[in-house]
Structure formats: C-alpha cells, structure tokens
Nucleic acid binder design. Structure first.
Length: 958
DNA sequence: GAGGTGTGGTAGC
DNA sequence: ATCGCTACCACACCTC
C-alpha cells in the first residue's frame, strides 16, 4: 500500500492512474506510515462510521477502468476493499448537514449503485444465463410499471444495458420505459422512444432484442412518427435561418441556458453563498478562536465536464478515446473540457472545435449536460461534508479546498482519507478526482497539478520547498495569468517564447516585483516564489468577508444591434433579468455600472467567432441609484441613460455588462431575519391607524385619499407647489397644459399616498436607513423622486447632469429618433436651414467646451441663451445658424432630463428659447433661423409630451 | 489620506 | 455556425 511512500515527486508527464505519494517530513514521520494504525485512528474510525450507514446489502463495486489500472490497482483496490468491508453502523444517529431529503437520495443512489455492481458481477459470472441483449441500450424507467422499476432495473443491467436514474434533457437514453403516460410527459418525452415494459420482458424471453416500434406506448394518434412529423412541420414553419442574436426577446434565457461560463459562475456564487451562510450559522454557535488548518487539501475532478458528459455515452472508452465537450460539432465553438486522451493530441480547454479537430480528427464532441454536472457536483460536496473537515472552501462546481487539523500526525491517515474519498466519489459519480495536499493553499494547488489526472500528491517538506518549486511555470501560480506571465516573460526573456519558471524569478527582487505589479500582487508573487502563502480558507473565521458584494450580468456574445430601440429593449430585458436575480438572492443594490464592449477600430465587423465580440475596447460608467433598490423601471432607465453617456455607436456594440453593487440584504420573505428586525423597527402604532382610516374611507365609497381633494387645489397653487413657472406654463399649447395639470395633480395625490404607511410597510427593508426620502427615490413610478428634486430650487441649480458634451455628438441622432417618434430623416430635416453640414463652426467648438466637461443646470440655461444669440450672429453676411452637432448635443441633454423626469427643467429651457427669440438683442437678420428655433422648442415639448403620455399609460395599467 | 471612479486581470470547464 | 460569465481584487487617477 505504501509502495510509493518514499518516491520523489513524479514528473508532469505521468501516466494516467499513477498515484504518487511524497513522504512527509516534519510533522509527519514516514515510519508511522503503516496500515496498523488505520483502525485505531479515531478520525479514520469516524470516517468509516459515516460511510454506508443504512446500507445493508453491500458488495464490492465492479472493477472499473480506474481500478483496473495496473499502476494504481494495488493501492486503490486494497483501500477500496477496506472501505466497503467496514461494517455499517446502524446506530449512527448523527445529523447530516444536508437534511433528510438529500440524505435519503444519497443513500438511495448509493444502494442503487451497489445493486448495479452486484448485478454486473453476477452477469460476468453467469454470462451464459444473461445474454447481453441490451448492450447498446441506455434505458430510463418512468412512473409505475409492471414489472416494477427495481425488477426492470435488474433485468436491464443483467442483460448488459445501462440503467438511467435520471433523464436529463440531453440524456443519451435510447429508450424510455413506461406503462402509463400523462399528456405532459408525452411532450417531455417527445424526443425519446417511449416503450411498454413488455418490450423488456419479451426481449428477455426471446433472448434477443425485439423491434421496439411494436411496443410503443403512445396511442396511434400520438404515435412517435406523428409527433416527429409534427415537429418537422413546426421547425420548417419557424424562420430558423435567421440567427438568434440579442434582438430576440428570448435571447437572454436561451443564451444563459447554454452558456457554460454562466453556469460555472452562478454555481460558484451559489456555493460560496451556501458555505458562507453555513459558516455564519456555525460562527454564531461557537465563537472560539480557530487555528489555521495544518493541512490544506485541494480536490478537483479530472476534466469534469468531459467525464460527466461521457457518462451518458457508455460506448465511449473514456480512458483511451479522445473526447471533448462543446456546442455543436464544428466551427468556432469553444472546447470547454477534453479528456487526457484528447490532450495527448494537443487539444486543450478553450480551444475552438475546428482547431481541435485539426489536431485530432477522431475527436468525439459531446454535448453539455448542465443538469448532470450540477447533480454530480452536489454528490461531490456532500461527500466532502461527510468527512467533516475543519473547513470547506468551494473553488468551483467541481473543485474545493479543504482544511484539516484534527488528524493525528499520521501520514497513513491522510493518504487513506484521500484514497477513500477518491474511491467514494468515483463510486458515486463515476468520475475521478485528483487530490493535492500540503501545508498551504499555494502548495496544495501545485500538488494538485502534479496529482492530475486521477492521482494524489502530497508535499510536506518546507525545507525542500525551493527544489519543489524551481521548475514550476509561473503561470501555474494562483492569480498569475496570461498578462502577468507575458510581462514577466518580456522582462526576463526579452521576448523569447520560453516558459517562465519560478527559478527564472529568483533573480528578481521583491522591490522589482512590487514596482512591476503593484504592492499586493508584487508581494504575493514574491512570497509564492519562496513557497509562502497565507491565504486563509476558513470562511467561518470571518464570514462577513465572504458575503456577496455585487451581482452582474455579462453578455458578450450575440450582441448585434441596428437601432437604438433594439438596444433600449435589450437593456430593459437585462434590467429585468438582474432585478429578478436581486429578488431571488434577496438583495437591493445602490450602485449601477454599465460596461460596454465596443469593436476596436479596425477590427473586422464580423469576428472569426460566429456572433462573437472580436477585439473590443471596454468602456464603463457607473451611477449611484440614490438608495438600494431592485426597481426594474429605475434600473432600466438608468441603464439607457448610462448607455447614452458612454455613447458607443450602435453598430459597434459587441458586449453589454451590468453590475449592481453596494448591496444590502432585503429578503422579500417576511419570515427572514432581516425583515423581522425591520418589522420591529417599524412598529409605530399611529401609522397603522392611518391605514385603517384610508381603508375605511374606501369602504364608505369615498376618496381613497381622505385628506386630499385635488379639485380644491387651484391650478396656480399646483404650479407654485411644483415650482412650474406660470408664464412658461401659459406659453404651452392648451392640450399640453392639460397634461401637465393632470400630471401635477396626480403627483400631489401620489405624494400623499407615498407617505402612507401601507406602502412603506411593503418596503420595510429600506427603513433600515431611517430615511423616507431615500425610499421615495427608489421608486420613480411613484414620482417621489421628481418631487424630491423639483421641489427644491437649490437642489435644482446644483444638479449635475452628467452629459459629456463631446460624447453625445456621436449618437444622439438615434436618441432623438427614440423620443419624438420621428424617423431619423425627419429629425435631420427638422432644422431645414440653409447652412450646410460641412460647416465646421459649431457652437460647441467655438466655445471650446472641452471634453468630459460636466455642467450644472444653470450652466445649461446660460449656454442655451448664448447659443441662440450665437446662431444669429453673422458670418459671410449670413447668420451662423444652428449646427446639427450642437443640436445633437442639446437633444441628448434634453433626453437625459426627460429620462430623469426633470419636467420643470425642460419647460424652462423651452421658455428660454421663447424669451431669447423675443429679446431685442438679437439681430433680426433671418426669419428661417428664428423659425428653426421655434421648431426646436416645439420638439422639446413634443419629446416631453411623448414621454408623459408613455408614463401616464404605464401608470394607468398598474 | 480617505474615498470615489474607471479599468484591468484572474479563476473555473 | 453559436451560447466569450461573473465575482472579486487591485490599482491608477481623481477630488475633497
């Protein structure tokens, strides 16, 4: 068993299945490393007790490629026998961390696996009795059947078939067995051969596989063929030629369902959250000072996706046949995972499929099966929990760091724990894991690299660390990626392509590293070179450090837009999506960032990757939402606004990323701890009475708002209240005046309503801030934001409107199109002045407003006055006129105002135009110019009106 | 010097 | 065809 105990670290080119073990020193003495200690070792005893509880019928698992491997067999087979020979302890009542439901399924699965193994053994012993008639079948049994599922299971396995416990959407089930079927299942199983159980029994009787079509379950009208032709018809009627890009309303759903990176990220975040929550609970129970774990184990599946996907392809010889997981079979799809047989050909993760096929023509491409990955991952983490380490730190869906300190100083114990774990995981998932272990995270990670694939590697010789590290490429160090490697390579090798190893760095001083990579990265890298790493993986020591800090959505594939409306609709959908996630995770966020990928100038319009982003520049802009929120409307509006500020030309947009940060917990669930706290805080009796008052009033048939009657307030008072200038108001067309009036009345009503505790109660999460004002800002639909901003003249004048003038010039034509409902041509001809577009003298340039200059509203008022005057100035005996670019900037600003619901500001700007035109200062040299200005003014009101009507309609429906 | 903002890099398959 | 995500850290640069 300990035949490898004194071997040197194996090389990277090790054979598959080679399980190497490097001797401990220091804490662990190699003389203690023996089997005799096994049984007495308490931690091992515990381990054994947990295993196979409630499992009474245990037989040795089948031989597997993994176990048959000649190099590992001695060690692994021995420990495996030992593992399963342990008597189950039925008295064990210790609670399991994952709850009864999951424990139940865990044991169920375990039992099933063991039964399968028994059957396989019987079969091999009595191969004459059980001809393998189902050897090419992967069979799933649904619902109640006769004979029942257990019997069918047995028959299938005994006759060489594969029995599926779970039917994934992309499962490779060749047959589904069912006696009855619901209409819902008919749809669910439409892509499978659904057959009666008699097919199995009859086939066994006949000792040959019978024609399944004679046993189909569907009645003639639901016959498989009919279904298929139905499907074909449907598919033909759909415009399948059109590529599905981000303009499609269902794009996000479709995209995320199929994005491996999306899955990886969400799984990771979920795991993190789960362990963080558990650590939080644990730390409440015991606040004892924990010591740092002495041993760090790094456990990771070998080519996880490939191994799991291959499970549904029993015909594949995973150890020898090159396989890869990807979408589709060719082209610019990424290879997400490939097995070691494929790696021998030079295939690697992240490579495109067509390149991989060039290197390895017989490479088999398998599909993703995200559900199955998740399922296997769950088993993996359950197993990790089961060995009760000091701490578990999830690195990824298939990978974790484990801290151990309770093991006595027994090398054998650690090796045994690792091997048992590996075997157990293999038995339960059908996939192999590798384990690296050392005394810190850095070294554990490096050990894992050496252990892969399908092996174990330890390093516990601090005195020998230099030797251990010297040939390791820096790229293998955690946190050292392509960029840092490149910079190191350029610095050290002066451009030569040779891999930079740690020994190459020995000449680099700490100061140089800090100078190169900054204080943190530099120091860390320097430490790594000495084998030092103080990363702590114990979440429970400081759970709050691991709490989620942001939520984001990135879409950098399929982004192709032609019109602003498409972009806006997409941003709305993204907002909706992110708000749903905020809700699901129980957060509100106060900060919003939009990051756009813009095609780099000169990069091809269509990059080599189909609908990919190609070479891009990234531009980002963030904004404060005022108070933590997850209001879709607000976030969508802000995103559209941010998009316009960043100002990426629509045709060049290749990626959209939205991040919400400054999160606060805000569970919608009233039973949550957070809400309970807030409810206590909110306990204010008088407010409750008010609610009753309103409700009573409604019952009596009176106004919902007993203290307010809109009719009583005169128009003048209303206008005063909202600081709308009476003259400006009178200058408006009648129709528009009416709308403003209605709007203001509505706002007064809502202002009252907003103060009612009924609404606040629904949002008590925000009461934490003890600020009703902030609550108001969270919900623009209820107009509080407007009131806040408009009712205070000082605020108004201080308002900084983030419009960088030059940026707007590029894209505001599109914005105008959006707002006024006019076509782009219509917008352009709105000002039909004689001045030509080649005219370079724009107001903007003339006044040298500069780049990225931000203006307060007062500045904009003055600018407008100046601009009007400027346009009437003479140049070559003609007035300068209004330049298209200036107008773009101006409309962009107006748009921003409207987006932020600053009605008063738009009105005052309209008023300024009127006043300026009437001013005697102007040289009355051209009536066209004046009429242009009046058109612009009309357009402002038009934009406002359009927006108000939209808003009104929106509010009416809600 | 503290704090805000934009950008860049890294990790997992 | 294709599904190039996402959370986090670190840092440069800026303002106050």
């Amino acid at each position: 068993m300990n035949k490898n105990s004194n071997s040197q670290p194996k090389s990277n080119e090790q054979e598959i299945g080679d399980s190497t073990f490097e001797a401990f020193n220091g804490t662990f003495s190699s003389t203690q490393f023996s089997n005799d200690n096994l049984v007495e070792d308490p931690s091992f005893d515990d381990l054994a007790k947990d295993e196979f509880m409630e499992c009474d019928d245990i037989s040795p698992p089948r031989k597997t490629p993994f176990l048959n491997d000649t190099k590992s067999q001695g060690t692994l087979d021995a420990s495996l026998t030992e593992l399963v020979d342990q008597q189950p302890d039925h008295k064990e009542t210790k609670e399991l961390k994952f709850g009864d439901y999951e424990t139940y399924f865990y044991h169920k699965k375990l039992k099933q696996q063991e039964k399968d193994d028994q059957y396989v053994q019987w079969r091999t012993k009595n191969s004459n009795q059980f001809p393998p008639i189902f050897s090419n079948c992967v069979i799933y049994v649904n619902g109640r059947t006769d004979p029942d599922i257990t019997q069918l299971h047995r028959m299938i396995i005994l006759h060489g078939g594969v029995f599926l416990n779970y039917l994934g959407a992309k499962s490779n089930a060749t047959h589904v067995i069912a006696s009855n079927i619901t209409p819902r299942k008919i749809i669910e199983f439409k892509n499978f051969k659904v057959i009666k159980p008699e097919w199995i029994t009859d086939s066994i009787k006949e000792k040959k596989i019978l024609d399944w079509t004679k046993y189909t379950l569907f009645s003639p009208q639901y016959d498989q063929k009919v279904l298929e032709s139905d499907r074909e018809l449907k598919e033909k009627s759909l415009p399948l030629n059109r590529p599905i890009d981000a303009t499609h309303p269902e794009f996000l759903k479709f995209f995320f369902e199929n994005s491996r990176l999306h899955h990886l990220s969400t799984w990771k975040a979920d795991l993190r959250e789960k362990f963080q929550q558990e650590a939080l609970r644990a730390s409440k129970v015991s606040q004892t000072l924990r010591t740092k774990p002495k041993i760090i184990m790094h456990i990771d599946f070998d080519c996880f996706f490939a191994a799991v996907s291959a499970l549904s392809h029993p015909d594949i010889d995973f150890a020898n046949e090159p396989i890869a997981v990807s979408h589709g079979g060719k082209g610019s799809s990424d290879v997400s995972s490939c097995n070691y047989a494929a790696r021998k050909f030079g295939v690697s993760n992240g490579m495109w499929v067509n390149r991989a096929l060039e290197l390895c023509p017989e490479l088999k491409i398998l599909d993703y099966d995200f559900k199955l990955y998740e399922e296997k991952s769950k088993i993996f983490y359950e197993e990790l929990t089961r060995i009760e380490p000091d701490c578990i730190f999830p690195v990824s869906v298939d990978e974790a760091l484990i801290g151990l300190s309770s093991i006595d100083d027994e090398e054998s114990t650690l090796l045994n724990i690792c091997e048992k774990l590996r075997n157990k995981i293999y038995v339960l998932t059908g996939c192999t894991v590798s384990i690296g272990a050392s005394y810190n995270v850095l070294l554990a990670k490096l050990c894992l690299r050496k252990a892969k694939p399908n092996g174990i590697f330890f390093f516990f010789q601090p005195n020998n660390v230099g030797n251990f590290l010297k040939n390791i490429p820096v790229k293998q160090l955690p946190g050292i990626g392509r960029k840092i490697e490149d910079r190191l390579s350029n610095h050290l090798n002066k451009g030569s392509k040779e891999t930079v190893t740690i020994s190459n760095l020995s000449s680099v001083s700490r100061d140089t590293m800090v100078k190169f990579f900054g204080i943190k990265t530099g120091t860390k890298l320097f430490g790594y070179c000495q084998g030092l790493d103080d990363t702590d993986i114990d979440i429970s020591k400081n759970p709050s450090k691991f709490i989620r800090k942001s939520i984001s959505i990135d879409v950098n594939w399929g982004i192709r837009f032609e019109k602003q409306t498409q972009v806006d609709e997409f941003l709305s959908r993204v907002a909706d999506h992110i708000c749903q996630r905020l809700l699901r995770l129980g957060f509100v966020g106060a900060r919003l960032m939009l990051k756009l990928a813009r095609r780099t100038k000169g990069a091809p319009i269509d990059p080599p990757k189909y609908l990919g982003m190609g070479l891009c520049d990234f531009l980002s802009k963030s904004t404060n939402l005022g108070a933590p929120t997850r209001e879709v409307g607000l976030i969508a509006t802000e995103l559209k606004s941010l998009y316009r500020i960043i100002g990426v030309a629509i045709a060049d947009l290749r990626g959209v990323s939205v991040t919400i940060s400054e999160l606060q917990k805000c569970d919608s669930d009233a039973t949550s701890a957070v809400d309970q706290k807030q409810l206590q805080f909110e306990a204010k009796k008088p407010k409750e009475k008010k609610v009753q008052g309103i409700e009573q009033n409604v019952l009596k048939g009176g106004s919902v708002f007993p203290h307010y009657s809109p009719a009583k307030e005169t128009l003048q008072k209303l206008l005063q209240k909202h600081l709308v200038d009476l003259d400006a108001f009178k200058a408006l067309p009648n129709e528009f005046q009416q709308e403003i009036k209605l709007e203001l009345e509505r706002r007064s009503v809502e202002q009252l309503f907003e103060k009612s505790p009924k609404k606040n109660r629904n949002r008590n999460c925000l009461l934490q801030n003890r600020s009703l004002k902030k609550i108001g800002k969270v919900r623009p639909e209820t107009q509080n934001k407007r009131i806040d901003l408009i009712s205070n003249q000082r605020t108004l004048n201080k308002l900084t409107l983030n419009i960088p003038i030059e940026n707007l010039g590029d894209s505001v034509i599109h914005q105008k199109t959006e707002l006024s409902g006019l076509t782009m041509e219509g917008q352009k001809t709105l000002v039909n002045s004689y001045w030509a577009s080649e005219k370079t003298k724009t107001f903007n340039k003339h006044y040298n407003l500069g780049i990225q200059t931000f203006y307060e509203f007062e500045d904009w008022k003055n600018l407008l006055k100046d601009w009007v005057r400027f346009s009437f100035e003479n140049e070559n005996e003609k007035p300068i006129g209004i330049h298209e670019n200036d107008l773009d900037v101006f409309y962009g600003f107006i748009h921003k105002l409207i987006l932020n619901e600053k009605i008063y500001e738009v009105l005052s700007l309209a008023d300024i135009i009127t006043c300026s035109l009437n001013s005697s200062e102007l040289v009355d040299n051209d009536t066209n110019n004046e009429s242009d200005w009046r058109k612009i003014r009309g357009e402002l009101l038009n934009m406002l009106k359009t927006n108000l009507v939209q808003k009104g309609a929106c509010i009416d429906t809600t």
